[in-house]
Design a protein around this nucleic acid. Structure first.
Lengths: 121, 121
DNA sequence: CTAAACAGTGGAGTACGGTCCAAGGTCAAG
DNA sequence: CTTGACCTTGGACCGTACTCCACTGTTTAG
């Protein structure tokens, strides 16, 4: 499919997709006239890119994931492994947030919360 | 205290503190010779800035929080309210992550995770 | 055939959050 | 009085992730 259709299907702009191609996030074959031609899987891949981005991964990291997938013998399995890894990342992030939450709870209602910030001394 | 000491106590660089002053994140009185002179509370405030940043707040938002605090009749109470608000934000962020986690779990182990991405059709 | 809708390129600009540097002023110790 | 540590300023520069623009080429519908 051409870039306009991919843009419509993913909710990204054409410019963003061209930018993603430039940084190696998405593959770009060309038709005879020079237009980009994307496979149908590009839609799902870009959906995944947005998810990974929401998880706090940089585009460079996501591109590396993609590299790994392209070299994998069984892509479906490799992708499952990738998702499992992401789940661990999500769990870690949630744990961090839980710590921050606890710190915030501890500060609420103290006489002077900023100064009660648990520094030594 | 002068900027070097504040930098040492917060773990920030002098340049970062000057940058924070420029964007209104931290107050800058001056001594007779033109050196910046920070009150002791600046340490705790900058600690808070880092925490808020870790929560995903932009420096501009954090600066606005600071504005609100300076205008508050009871700073300790205003700060408690601020922390309570941040707790709600943390809860919202954790809920988002929980959704993402569920999506990832759903994709693991499907025949072709990328294509099973729950799109209509 | 023409006009619109699509595609291409390169390059500039934006916002955020710093980071580094050069040139110079201030201050305490030896 | 010099040395060195500290401070000042302005401005250039970086990486990330886009976003917009002008100009040009291609395809499609009437």
């Amino acid at each position: 499919m051409r870039i306009g259709e991919l843009a419509a299907r993913t909710g990204l702009t054409r410019d963003t997709i061209r930018f993603y191609e430039k940084v190696g996030l998405v593959a770009g074959r060309r038709t005879a006239n020079g237009y980009r031609d994307f496979p149908p899987e590009a839609v799902a891949w870009l959906d995944y890119v947005r998810t990974a981005q929401a998880l706090g991964f940089s585009l460079a990291e996501i591109a590396l994931n993609g590299e790994g997938l392209r070299g994998a013998p069984d892509t479906a399995e490799a992708l499952s492994a990738l998702f499992e890894e992401k789940i661990r990342v999500v769990d870690a992030r949630m744990a961090e947030l839980a710590v921050l939450r606890a710190e915030l709870v501890a500060r609420v209602g103290t006489g002077c919360p900023l100064l009660a910030a648990g520094r030594p001394g």
